[in-house]
Amino acid sequence: MQVTNLTKKHGDELIIADASFALEPGKVTCLLGASGAGKTTILKILGGLDNDYSGTIESALARPSAAIGYLSQNDKFLPWRSVHANVALGLELTGQHRKEAFIKAEETLARLHLSDFQKKMPHQISGGMLQKALLARTLALEPKLLLLDEPMSNMDMLARQEYARMIRDYIISTKSTGLIVTHSIEEACILADNVYILSAKPARIIAEIQRNDAYEDYVAKVTAALMKALQ
């Protein structure tokens, strides 16, 4: 996917200014910026949920569609369905037969080591586990593009490592494309192969940092670039 000169306005207010970036298959990219910089708006545009923008988005994927797995910060499970039935929901919504959807959901939960929780209701599991189960609902659809909005905000360090492994395994094994937006340097560095640094509103891309070095050097470079962007 290639995004060129993406610009978004709310009335006279400029939200995103000429953002250009490329997303590569088999890699996770991160847009890192301060809260309220317009990161979620970029995700919504790429997910096809906001079509009021200028610029070009070159992609073979229909937007919106099940080929794009968009996991927003506000996504919730249906409280009347078990975790298993919730993971099957996306498949059912794309027209798959209920029985097939449930089998596939079970397989996805097993692959992500979440089978122990599949019979529980959403209110019976922890916030971190819920985030993982929500990811399972998205991954069950086998999306070609994964759009994640601050996906690890409710997790402790161990859960973050596990979650990042789940995402990276999926992206590498399926040669799909991942994009996360976050304000957390840690989240960006754990997950992403390259990080675009965004300025404060209006969001402009200030720098791009590739993950070529050791993790500590990568974190140092990203931190320095973000500090510079926010000054």
Binding site: K76, G90, L93
Partner: peptide, 12 residues
């Protein structure tokens, strides 16, 4: 509260 996910899939 819950239909955003369905809209992101362009569900019928």
């Amino acid at each position: 509260q819950y239909a955003g996910f369905a809209r992101s899939l362009n569900a019928r």
